[in-house]
Design a protein around this nucleic acid. Structure first.
Length: 626
RNA sequence: GGGCCCGUGGCCUAGUUUGGAUAGGGCGUCGGCCUGCGGAGCCGGAGGUCCCGGGUUCAAAUCCCGGCGGGCCCA
């Protein structure tokens, strides 16, 4: 064991000096030593003496001669700093990585436990835009991380196939004369979203007769029979196939597609409605502005009580979105006796099967026993998600398990909005994407642009490569650039898309990570594998920097396990790559003499092992030569 | 009118959850480094009221209160 072992040793030494609570922190500035204790600051008040003196006394009492990893202890300005015995410490770090067999850093905390993650959930009437991609990449990265921690992860994608936005598309096909085949060169989801949907919305706004027809279509879809229903199902499936292709391109995979209409058909809402009544969580309004509605009682909610109770069933008897969300969420927490049946929809690129709800289907997929149910949904849904969560608690369910993983939206810069034909107001700095107005940048469009840009670079560097190889590598670089850009930013910060910025392949980007990995592989390829974890002496600064960072990985994953934040993982990957590049520039490996060469090869091998894990966790495709 | 989120060099951003030593990066800009393990790289320079004002603390970008500006959700 590396860093964790070193921390444990430092704690032991402090206890041996009479310190009750060691308060160890990993130093950000390693010139003070690897770890430090701030215990002297804590004791200063109660002892009525200066932290500086207390720290010096503690340090004086500590005897490091029996320690494997710590060489000495010194008090500086009230901190008690611990310096590593680098000969032993670097060996411990390298051996832990090399012996872990590609599982380095995984504590295995999730073994035997299940987590449900729902992400993507794009209406099946349009292609994915970059905002959706943020959802897909965050959700998929969470799935990868939890799987690595040993959890069994079930990935769901919720398909709202019964909303009015579907009726818009159906209206176009039934009443506006659109043929079912897209024009040449256009995929079906693009055709529906870019052409039929946008035009249909526009026409229905101008023509009340069309708006009325759309209402009829909505009713027909909900009645689950007739031409509109059949057409709807066919379109949903076709669009979904195209959408999934885009998601696969981004590296995502799925286990289950839950169709909203199928789930309602199973009587899920009726069952949960009964339970809500029994729990006295809802009531029927006899009078007032909401007379005839069933409402969720929010009067005891600390914040939402101010806004009045939430309508679940409208006076015309139809359910609201939020009612259906509550029923569905309750099902995820096993509050329902319903057991949906599934059939195979498709296969992920890794060969695993994707199931879709189906009345004729024979497959049962248990959702029972999840320790967490994570729902990746943008921040605009924060209030409704809080209501869902509150309803779950009123039903007596463990609402703590139900997690809204919120993230800010992706918006357009003025410049990019103008390129799409939009005229911003003078003071408008950002423009929100809109499916209804056709104002968005498609994932495929942006990936294609990135790929084209990457391919130009590749052709310059490798004029001898075949077209296939150039294209394949270009695709991987494009995916890396987009995926990394979307997950590296804090989830509560909006991303204002700047296509010039995102086209960059240098600096803090996905391709930088790929390039660094390829460099490491090149050394290993030329070196063979005679390596040694035993340093010939005190390692150099660049070696220490790299070793230090590698040693931190297990703690990084522990932190993720408690805070669920992805961004620190991307920061870590970038810093690690950066430190490897410094090492690469400053410390020769292949040309070093024997003992140094073997030790440095162990460092490179360890780096490649760890970095390969990291790239997989982030969904950045690995490239051996670029 | 109520609630939530954001505010860090010209631009973007980490650090805020858990207060700790000199506020890290990237882009851009200026200047260096390929007969060397791959220059999609590395090194250096210039550039900062951490939005403002109070408070707590030995210590505040970080915690608390009050503003200002922007975004979102609800009424």
């Amino acid at each position: 064991m590396g860093l964790k072992h070193l921390i444990a040793e430092a704690e032991k030494l402090l206890r041996s000096a009479g310190v009750q609570e060691p308060l160890i922190q990993v130093n950000r500035d390693p010139s003070f030593g690897e770890v430090a204790s701030t215990v002297a600051f804590q004791l200063a008040k109660s002892l009525g003496r200066s932290p500086k003196l207390i720290a010096e006394e503690i340090a004086a009492k500590i005897e490091t001669s029996g320690s494997e990893l710590i060489s000495y202890v010194e008090a500086i300005n009230g901190y008690v700093n611990f310096r590593a015995n680098w000969v032993g410490y670097s060996q411990a770090i390298l051996e832990e990585i090399l012996s872990s067999g590609g599982r380095y850093g995984s504590s295995g905390v999730g073994a035997g436990k299940r987590i449900i993650i729902e992400h993507t959930s794009v209406n099946p009437n349009k292609p994915l835009h970059v905002g959706h991609a943020r959802n897909v990449c965050l959700g998929d990265t969470l799935a990868r991380l939890y799987r690595f921690l040993g959890y069994e992860v079930l990935v769901l994608n919720y398909i709202d196939d019964s909303g009015t936005q579907m009726a818009d598309v159906i209206l176009g096909f039934m009443e506006l004369g659109y043929r079912l085949d897209p024009p040449a060169g256009m995929s079906f989801d693009e055709y529906c979203g870019d052409v039929v949907y946008v035009e249909s919305v526009k026409r229905a706004e101008l023509d009340p007769a069309l708006a009325e027809r759309r209402r009829q279509i909505t009713g027909e879809i909900e009645s689950r029979s007739g031409r509109a229903f059949e057409l709807n199902r066919m379109i949903v499936w076709k669009v979904l196939r195209d959408q999934l292709r885009t998601c696969w391109r981004l590296g995502a995979r799925y286990d289950v597609l839950n169709m909203e209409s199928d789930i309602l058909a199973y009587g899920l809402w009726d069952e949960i409605f009964g339970k809500l009544k029994a729990a006295k969580a809802i009531y029927f309004a006899e009078s007032g502005p909401k007379a005839g509605c069933w409402l969720l009682d929010l009067s005891r909610h600390p914040v939402l009580s101010k806004e009045g109770d939430e309508v679940l069933i409208k006076s015309d008897g139809t359910t609201t979105y939020i009612a259906r969300d509550i029923a569905y969420a309750a099902w995820k927490l096993e509050a329902s006796s319903k057991d949906f049946s599934y059939e195979v929809f498709d296969e992920n690129p890794d060969g695993s099967k994707i199931y879709v709800t189906s009345e004729q289907g024979k497959v049962r997929i248990p959702v029972s026993g999840a320790v967490k149910v994570i729902n990746v949904i943008d921040v605009r849904q924060r209030r409704p998600q809080e209501i869902v969560r509150y309803a779950l608690s009123l039903l007596g369910l463990d609402a703590e398990k139900y997690i809204h993983y919120g993230y800010e939206v992706v918006a357009l810069s003025r410049k990019d909005a103008e390129k799409l034909g939009y005229s911003p107001e003078l003071d408008q700095r950002i423009i929100h994407m809109s499916g209804r107005r056709g104002l968005y940048i498609k994932v495929n469009q942006l990936l294609d642009l990135l790929k084209w840009r990457a391919m130009m670079e590749i052709r310059e560097r490798h004029p001898d490569w075949s077209d296939d190889r150039v294209s394949e590598t270009g695709e991987k670089i494009a995916v890396a650039a987009l995926r990394y850009a979307l997950i590296r930013q804090d989830t509560d910060k909006m991303i204002v898309l700047d296509t010039d910025e995102i086209m960059r392949l240098e600096g803090d980007t996905g391709p930088y990570l790929q390039y660094t990995y390829a460099r490491a592989l090149r050394i290993l390829e030329k070196a063979g594998y005679e390596l040694s974890t035993k340093p010939p002496g005190e390692p150099s600064e660049p070696e220490k920097m790299l070793l230090r960072r590698m040693a931190y990985f297990p703690i990084l994953l522990d932190e993720f396990h408690s805070n669920m934040l992805i961004k620190p993982i991307t920061d870590y990957a970038y810093n690690l790559a950066s430190e490897f590049n410094v090492f690469y520039e400053k410390v020769p490996v292949l040309k070093a003499d024997d003992r140094e060469r073997r030790f440095r090869l162990a460092i490179v091998k360890s780096f490649a092992t760890l970095f390969s894990i990291l790239l997989d966790l982030l969904g950045v495709p690995r490239i051996d030569v670029m």
